[in-house]
Design a binder for these strands. Structure first.
Lengths: 162, 162
DNA sequence: TATTGTTATACTCTATAACTATA
DNA sequence: TATAGTTATAGAGTATAACAATA
């Protein structure tokens, strides 16, 4: 567990702090929960490992070989201009390959390289484990509930895609 | 036109995109859900109204009169240096008052001014309503579930403070 | 020496507009 | 004219370190 979360709890407990109606503002609570989750996650995450944003793109390309860059950007709520840089970083690392299709020479389609596949294999178990550990205050049932709820918010049905 | 909300949905549906195991990474889903919630919220939020970060501080001070700045920063996961600026903005707006207590002249304790109380009264209903509307894809039960789960993640028990 | 808060600054993410090349 | 992607840059949010005042 992360130091930060514990510290906050101790201090707030000692001070007898209340946030009142704020804890019923779901958007704010989502934000605080997400920050807590990320704090805990990155406290465990080794330096030098692939960045989460990069891993997310890598996984998304892996799940959708030949996806166009713009489509990917839209799904992950990243601006096209920023996705350009993200993808270039991954290309520089040799993890994904860019290809201009003949059917539309404006487009760029993406695939994962062999090295990228190795990176996924090496990182995925760790990320899953750290992700679960970062939310270890939840029971398995609650964890599943959270995923179901956040999927619904994101507009993604049950298993897989949309 | 290049990037619109509607376009995103159409494209992903048309492309039959899948994010696979990524949708079981709770931390990532929390992040996407939070971004979605904020996008929806701010699409409805009127220009010129108090900023959410400022309103959050205002509410927190209102719930905890005399709270010290550093404690507040820790609870809301804001750095002290940044809280200094946030609080100054609110002071400049005449919404909160800063006071150095005799018991510890290093500290700064905060209270909400009369004007601040008026601001809260004027903003709170709207924020609650927009917050609920931003998550209108959830049922009331699911909304309550989400709040319970995020409270638990944040380390805050049932109702109110800790 | 440690703590509270401030200042200044750097860094990361995200956003916007102008540009190209294709369609 | 519209679209896919790029470039350059601006902006917000966040992080870090040095500092002053007080404990």
């Amino acid at each position: 567990m992360a130091e930060t979360g514990k510290l906050v709890q101790d201090e707030t407990e000692a001070a007898g702090i209340s946030l009142g109606a704020l804890t019923s503002t779901a958007g704010l609570m989502l934000r605080i929960a997400q920050l807590t989750s990320f704090d805990n996650f990155f406290a465990l995450y080794p330096d030098g490992a692939i960045r989460i944003s990069e891993f997310t793109v890598l996984m998304a390309v892996s799940e959708n070989p030949g996806i166009r860059q713009g489509v990917l950007a839209d799904i992950l709520k990243v601006k096209w201009s920023n996705m350009t840089m993200l993808v270039r970083t991954l290309e520089d690392q040799g993890l994904i390959a860019r290809h201009v299709p003949r059917s539309d020479r404006r487009a760029v389609v993406l695939t994962v390289t062999e090295e990228g596949k190795r990176q996924i294999a090496a990182s995925r178990d760790m990320i899953d484990r750290l992700d679960r550990e970062a939310l270890s205050m939840l029971t398995d049932d609650e964890h599943a509930q959270l995923i179901a709820l956040t999927r619904k918010i994101a507009g993604w049905p049950e298993k897989g895609g949309l």
